[in-house]
C-alpha cells in the first residue's frame, strides 16, 4: 500500500466518521431505550368540577384516619394539628383539622389546608391555602384563599374576598367584590338572592306551536348584524362580525359570532352563545344555554343562566364580570379573573 492509498483510506475513514456523528445520539438512544414509553393518558378520567376536593378528601383520610384530639404525622401530608372551637393563635403553619362548629377569628393565617367536618365560619381578612368543609361554610370580608374551597353544603363569601376555585353541592352566595377563577354551585348567586326561575315552565310552552330549533343555520357574512327589538328567531345563527340582539328578543337556537355579542335587556336565549369576541348580557335576561367566549363575559343584574334541570357553563378566556343579583346554574370558569361588581 503506497502513501496515496493510505491517504485515501484516511480520508474515507474520516468522511465515514463525520457522517456517523449525527447518528451518535441515535445509536445511544437505541442502546439506552429510554423515553420510548407512550405518553400517559388517564383512561378513567371523567370531568368533575369537584375532583380536586374529592381527591383531597380521600387522600386525607387515607393518610390520617383522623381521630379528634390527636396530633398526627403523615409522610405524605406532613403534620396535622387538630383544633377545637378555640383558636389560640393567629398563625398556623401546619395542616389544621377543626373539630366541631367553629368560628375562626379575624386575621387568622393558615399556611396549609383547613379541614372541617362541621359548620365553619371565617372572620374578616383571613388567609388560607385550602378550606374543605363538610357543612356550611361562611367566609367574612376580604379573605384570601390561595388554592380552593369546597363544601358539601352552602358557601357564603363576604365582600372583596378572593377565593380562586370554589365548589359547592349547594348554593354559593358571592358578595360584591369577590374575585375567582372557577366556581361550581347549585346555583352560584351574586349578592342577595332574587327569585330565579326554577324551570322553563311558561317560557318554552308559549312557543310550543312554532318549529323547534333546527340545524339550518342562518349565516350572516356582514361585519355587524342586529336582531331588532322584539324579534323571535327559531333557528341557529352564525355571524361573521358583531352581533347585537336588542331588548325583548327571543332566540330559540344556538348563537355563534366571530366578533362580539351583545344581548339587550329582558331577552330570552334558548341555546348556547359562542363568541370569538366578548359577550355582554343585559339586565333581566334568561339564557338556557352555555356561554363561551374567547375574550370576556359580562352579565348584568337579574339575569339567569341555566336552571337546576338544565345546568350550564359560563366559560371565558379573559375576564368574567358578574353584576349583583345574578344566578348561574352552575359552572363558571375563566383563564384570568372573575369578579362580582
Amino acid at each position: 500500500m503506497n502513501s496515496i492509498d493510505i491517504l485515501l483510506l484516511e480520508y474515507t475513514l474520516g468522511v465515514i466518521i463525520l457522517m456517523l456523528i449525527p447518528l451518535a445520539p441515535v445509536i445511544y438512544a437505541v442502546w439506552d431505550r429510554k423515553g420510548y414509553e407512550p405518553l400517559p393518558v388517564n383512561m378513567k378520567y371523567t370531568k368533575d368540577p369537584r375532583a380536586i376536593a374529592k381527591y383531597f378528601d380521600q387522600y386525607f383520610h387515607d393518610s390520617f384516619g383522623v381521630k379528634p384530639g390527636e396530633i398526627l404525622n403523615s409522610k405524605k401530608l406532613g403534620k396535622l394539628e387538630v383544633v377545637g372551637e378555640t383558636f389560640h393563635r393567629s398563625l398556623y403553619k401546619d395542616m389544621v383539622y377543626i373539630v366541631g362548629k367553629a368560628k375562626v377569628p379575624d386575621r387568622s393565617r393558615f399556611e396549609r389546608e383547613v379541614i372541617s367536618r362541621d359548620e365553619l365560619e371565617f372572620g374578616n381578612r383571613c388567609y388560607a391555602r385550602v378550606i374543605k368543609s363538610q357543612k356550611k361554610l361562611i367566609l367574612g370580608e376580604e379573605n384570601c384563599i390561595v388554592r380552593w374551597i369546597d363544601s358539601e353544603s352552602t358557601i357564603t363569601v363576604g365582600r372583596y374576598s378572593h377565593i380562586n376555585i370554589a365548589s359547592s353541592m349547594s348554593t354559593m352566595h358571592l358578595e360584591k367584590g369577590v374575585s375567582f377563577r372557577r366556581l361550581y354551585g347549585y346555583p352560584v348567586l351574586t349578592s342577595h338572592a332574587f327569585s330565579f326561575r326554577k324551570n322553563l315552565e311558561g317560557i318554552r310552552e308559549e312557543h310550543i306551536d312554532k318549529p323547534s330549533i333546527d340545524e339550518n343555520l342562518l349565516y350572516v357574512p356582514d361585519k355587524k348584524y342586529t336582531l331588532t327589538k322584539g324579534t323571535i328567531l327559531f333557528r341557529s345563527l352564525v355571524t361573521q362580525g358583531h352581533l347585537i340582539i336588542e331588548q325583548n328578543t327571543k332566540v330559540f337556537g344556538n348563537i355563534k359570532s366571530n366578533g362580539d355579542v351583545e344581548v339587550g335587556d329582558n331577552s330570552f336565549i334558548d341555546g348556547n352563545i359562542i363568541a370569538e369576541g366578548s359577550i355582554k348580557i343585559g339586565k333581566n335576561c334568561f339564557v338556557v344555554g352555555n356561554m363561551f367566549s374567547r375574550a370576556s363575559i359580562k352579565i348584568d343584574s337579574y339575569t339567569q343562566i341555566g336552571t337546576s334541570e338544565h345546568p350550564k357553563s359560563v366559560i371565558s378566556k379573559k375576564m368574567i364580570t358578574l353584576a349583583e343579583h345574578v344566578a348561574i346554574f352552575n359552572y363558571l370558569l375563566t383563564d384570568k379573573t372573575g369578579e362580582v361588581k
Binding site: 393518558v41 378513567k44 371523567t46 370531568k47 343555520l217 344556538n254 355563534k256 348556547n272 359562542i274
Partner: peptide, 19 residues
C-alpha cells in the same frame, strides 16, 4: 383504538358551537 372513558363527551361538546 382505545378510547378513554371521557373522550366521547370531550369530542361531542364541540358541537355546542353551531358552526
Amino acid at each position: 383504538y382505545q378510547p378513554p372513558d371521557g373522550i366521547i363527551r370531550e369530542l361531542v361538546v364541540g358541537f355546542k358551537d353551531p358552526e
